[in-house]
Nucleic acid binder design. Structure first.
Length: 698
DNA sequence: GAGCACTGC
């Protein structure tokens, strides 16, 4: 056991040649372990950040290149400093604005607050931010604006050339979210019309080359532009080192059979043999995490000396807020904290004090099959980029150790360098409608950083056509198409809202739309399934989950939005507050679109019709003679089941539509409502035209 | 009979 590990090293930093006119600054390899001193002035602190050494170089490159790619490791200070350098160099003069996008709302808020503090200004004035539902900027005074990439996309609908921005910095571009990829594609287009616009793409090492290739304009274009004044069109690449400490990498010598068991053994091994310091374990989901904690607890009972002093903390998004926050509490003296986490700890939140890292090499990832139109969540191997990111989590406070539960040979020979961009793993309905709203007609010919499959594109176009959002020429219909594009929700939900106007149930449908937009309004946790089921029964509606949501919402309002009421009923208080907030936003949007907000009172049939009008593509029929509750999708005859969390579980109405599928050993429909099949033909004659009368018989 | 993570006027 003691010789389980074979030390290895991380792949060295990519230091590349200068082919194709790409300028490359290599960072010095110094292990920057300079410590921060307590009372240094903000200015001194800023100068100590690794990125400070590159201030002049960055400003030079931005001045002279249309696109600059910054390869920066965590802790380099690039996100907070570069926008300030740009402002100091005059890029915000004359009413122009410097934009910096982030993939996450929380990051936008945190970073903008930090920058405002460093500049000694009030947040919302010179430095501001915009996220969905929150605009803390002041047009006229805001010079540096942080925003989510999705918000910047929305801004393009009003101002396609982003004329008020002088520089757009796309941060964390290596995460390759759908909105980042759309944004990169559009920014490249804008550059041709606006030579004055500068782009900064911040990316992890491993992605820098493909980013550079993407922004490289063709030789012919460059020859044409060569004579003109203006920035060079070829991208520059600059590498900035981070502030992380060295992390020693260990691989297993033989492949492991069971990564949960291996993770547990490794935690015990570290606890046995290594000095104090907290451990972070990456597993794939709640199941794995609960199993690992169970095994470690068992160990604690049978072999006390092995595991005494371990504090076991699960971490995943579905965990109630209070339990999530335990991972941030300081470790008591003489104890060792073991955080067992999903990918949430890889990007979304940062744990301080982690010294040991156990990497299973797997995560749950979404995949999309355009033929069946089904998105699956499956356990899949992570990429080298992810492995590297995970390892880095162990070196934030002092040198750390990373234990990888896969072999070095597997890492170097089989693990893919980078993950598959989300664009190539998703249903593209939302993406297509956004591009259409931005006036991009030739979607199949769009210049993407990573092209989605034509099948997925065609499937999205087909569904949008059936929803009446696109016409025969694949243009947005008026008014429905333009209205759906305005609503910041999944197009199927937006369509449901539009239909509710005609059906006279918009009050109810707005509530349902808001509930479907939050993760879950229920509190679920280990060992409380039965209590949750009982609580649900108090609200359960025979029609299905959507109508059940209406009952919960009504109860919540009647309780005076009480957190105690939520606790008593296993309802997630934070989720319900968000529902109220989103619903209010949707109500305003609906009114702006001319929707009359009206209640259908007790008539749930119209509510079900409105849901069907949006979700007809997800219609399923119970298999006759099936006692196992097996359904088949009307479109593709795929085998699906009602999720056990649904109020219709075991009720099994003959016809249902679902909101989403989750797949484990089976495909489970989540959020299900019973319908009458005749509504399907009413809602989408084209979609179901090839089905004869018989297939809809009762 | 049971849920990776984000996000949008």
């Amino acid at each position: 056991m003691a010789q389980f590990w074979k030390p290895g090293t991380e792949k060295p930093r990519l230091v590349d040649d200068e082919e194709g006119g790409v300028l490359f600054f290599s960072a010095s390899a110094s292990s920057s372990s300079s410590s921060r001193f307590g009372y240094a002035s903000i200015e001194k602190q800023r100068q100590r950040l690794p990125v400070y050494k590159y201030r002049t170089a960055i400003l030079y490159l931005v001045e002279n290149h249309a696109t600059t790619i910054i390869v920066g490791e965590t802790g380099s200070g690039k996100t907070t400093q570069i926008p300030q350098y740009l402002k100091e160099a005059g890029w915000a003069e004359g009413g122009r604005v410097i934009a910096c996008t982030q993939p996450r709302r929380l990051a936008v808020q945190a970073v903008s607050a930090r920058v405002a503090e460093e500049m000694g200004v009030t947040l919302g004035e010179e430095v501001g931010y915009t996220i969905r539902f929150e605009d803390l900027t002041n047009s006229g005074t805001t010079m540096i604006k942080f925003l989510t990439d999705g918000v910047l996309l929305r801004e393009m609908m009003d101002d396609p050339l982003l004329t008020k921005y002088s520089v757009v910095m796309v941060d964390e571009a290596h995460e390759r979210s759908i909105s980042t990829d759309i944004l990169l594609g559009l920014l490249k287009k804008i550059q041709r019309r606006r030579p004055d616009l500068r782009l900064i793409i911040s990316s992890a090492t491993i992605e820098a080359k493909s980013m550079s290739a993407f922004f490289q304009t063709s030789k012919r274009r460059r020859a044409l532009e060569g004579e003109e004044l203006g920035p060079r069109m070829d991208p520059a690449i600059l590498s900035v080192e981070g502030r992380g400490f060295h992390v020693q990498i260990h691989f297993v010598e033989e492949p492991v059979q069971d990564y949960v068991q291996a993770a547990v053994s490794t935690v015990l091994l570290i606890h046995d043999q290594e000095p104090m310091g907290d451990i972070l374990v990456f597993l794939t989901g709640q199941d794995d995490i609960d199993a690992a904690i169970h095994l470690l607890n068992e160990e604690a009972q049978t072999n006390r000396k092995h595991s005494s002093g371990l504090i076991l903390l699960p971490l995943y998004s579905g965990l109630p807020r209070a339990e999530q926050e335990l991972v941030f509490s300081p470790t008591p003296r003489g104890k060792r904290k073991v955080v067992i986490s999903t990918n949430i700890a890889e990007t979304s939140l940062t744990l301080e004090g982690i010294v040991y890292l156990v990497d299973s090499g797997f995560s749950k990832q979404k995949f999309y099959n355009p033929i069946s139109d089904i998105e699956n969540l499956v356990v899949a191997p992570i990429s080298k980029a992810s492995a590297r990111q995970r390892a880095g989590r162990a070196g934030r406070v002092r040198p750390g150790k990373c234990y990888r539960l896969y072999t070095e040979e597997y890492f170097s020979k089989e693990m893919s360098a980078e993950g598959i961009p989300e664009m190539q793993r998703s249903n593209l309905v939302s993406c297509v409608i956004q591009l259409k709203a931005l006036g991009i007609d030739n979607i199949l010919g769009f210049d993407w950083p990573a092209s989605p499959s034509p099948e997925a594109m065609i499937r999205a176009l087909e569904i949008l056509y059936s929803l009446g959002i696109l016409d025969d020429d694949a243009k947005l219909t008026s008014p429905a198409g333009f209205q759906v594009a305005e609503i910041p929700l999944e197009p199927m939900i937006s369509k449901m809202i539009l239909s509710s106007n005609e059906l006279g149930c918009s009050e109810e449908i707005l509530t349902i739309a808001a509930v479907l937009s939050v993760q879950s309004i229920w509190v679920y946790g280990r060992g409380v399934h039965r209590e949750l089921d009982e609580a649900k029964l108090r609200f359960a509606a025979a029609e299905g989950d959507h109508v059940t949501f209406l009952n919960v919402y009504k109860g919540f309002l009647q309780s005076g939005k009480s957190s105690q009421w939520c606790h008593k009923n296993h309802v997630n208080y934070h989720a319900m507050k968000k529902v109220v907030e989103i619903r209010e936003q949707l109500r305003r949007i609906a009114q702006r679109l001319g929707i009359v907000v009206k209640s259908c009172e007790r008539d749930m049939q119209v509510v079900r019709k409105a849901v069907t009008a949006g979700f007809f593509a997800n219609a399923c029929r119970l298999e006759a003679f099936s006692h196992s509750g097996m359904y088949k999708t009307v479109r593709g005859s795929h085998e699906v089941y009602i999720h056990p969390s649904s109020v219709l579980f075991r009720v099994n109405p003959k016809w249902v539509v679902y909101h989403s599928l989750v797949s484990t050993d089976r495909q489970y429909m989540r959020n299900v409502i019973s319908i009458d099949p005749s509504w399907l033909i009413e809602a989408a004659p084209h979609f179901y035209q090839h089905h004869g009368q018989n297939s809809f018989g009762k």
